[in-house]
Amino acid sequence: MSGAHHIVLIVLFSAAVQSGTTLLYPTIGEIFAERSGILNLGVEGMMIMGAFFGFVVTYITRNPYIGFLAGVLAGGAAALIHAFVSITLRGNQVVSGLALTIFGLGFTNFYGQRWINLRSPVTVSQMSVPLLSKIPYIGPIFFKQDALVYTSYIVAIVMWFILYKTKVGVHLRATGQNARAADAMGVNVYATRYWWTFFGGLLAGAGGAYLTIAYAPFWLDGMTAGRGWIAIALVIFAMWDPLNAMVGAYLFGGIDALQLQLQAVGVTIPSSLLNMLPYLLTLIVIIIATLIVRVKHISAPKELGIPYNREEK
């Protein structure tokens, strides 16, 4: 019997990693956009664009990797709208981000009708990592996944390294913390913000694409269902650190997987309450994270949401 329990848990945690991957990509993306000083509340909109194009291109080309790339680029393209409005035109970033969400949901509803309920003919295949997949518990959970999951591990680690150990990271952190000083020292503030906002969109697209390519390989209207907003909350939970983002993403992936599992098993709790769980827990966690951030005197990048204008004092 204990063996069966063991397998159930591994299946659950393995699903948690997959669900978490749909959050990990966009969370890391938003961390970098925010680190540069740009608040992009359009993650939900960028994710749904990524999800839609990822699905459609996979469906047409029958190649999930090309589809994934298409989803990534769709998210990036959507982010460029936000970048233009908030960096070049110095518009209100909160409203622009909301507009981006409305846009993504409207766009995919408008063009997505004929794809609704279609299932993807292909999906990404699982591949075990030699040696690592043999580690008890850790192996089957983290290293018997698909290539897109492994890519997310690499992205998290590489981005952590870039953030703290490279010139690019120094420029990025300076831009979000004190744009005037960065500019005076020769950092191109506008280019830095454009690039990282775009990068944030690429990763949001990746999260959406992973959803429709691997985690739930079909298309439903509005199927990101608030994952973009959870990702934005996770940025605070992660305290703007890509490795912390992994913890947050898998935690929420775990809750999501758990509630699906419970529904599948037919637990008597109504499904609407189980569905509510991730959002409720996000709310609770964000409250706790906010309090911790305050006590620890960590704060959001100082110029988050503030447009930069060189000639304005």
Binding site: I81, F84, V85, L89, G91, N92, V95, S96, L98, A99, L100, I102, F103, L105, G106, F107, T108, N109, F110, Y111, G112, Q113
Partner: peptide, 20 residues
């Protein structure tokens, strides 16, 4: 599809705040 409303509304918003 009704999504056209979202496309139009978001376009209006982008232009509006971009024009400020």
């Amino acid at each position: 599809p009704f999504g056209i409303v979202g496309v139009i509304e978001s376009a209006i918003l982008f232009v509006l705040i971009g024009s400020e």
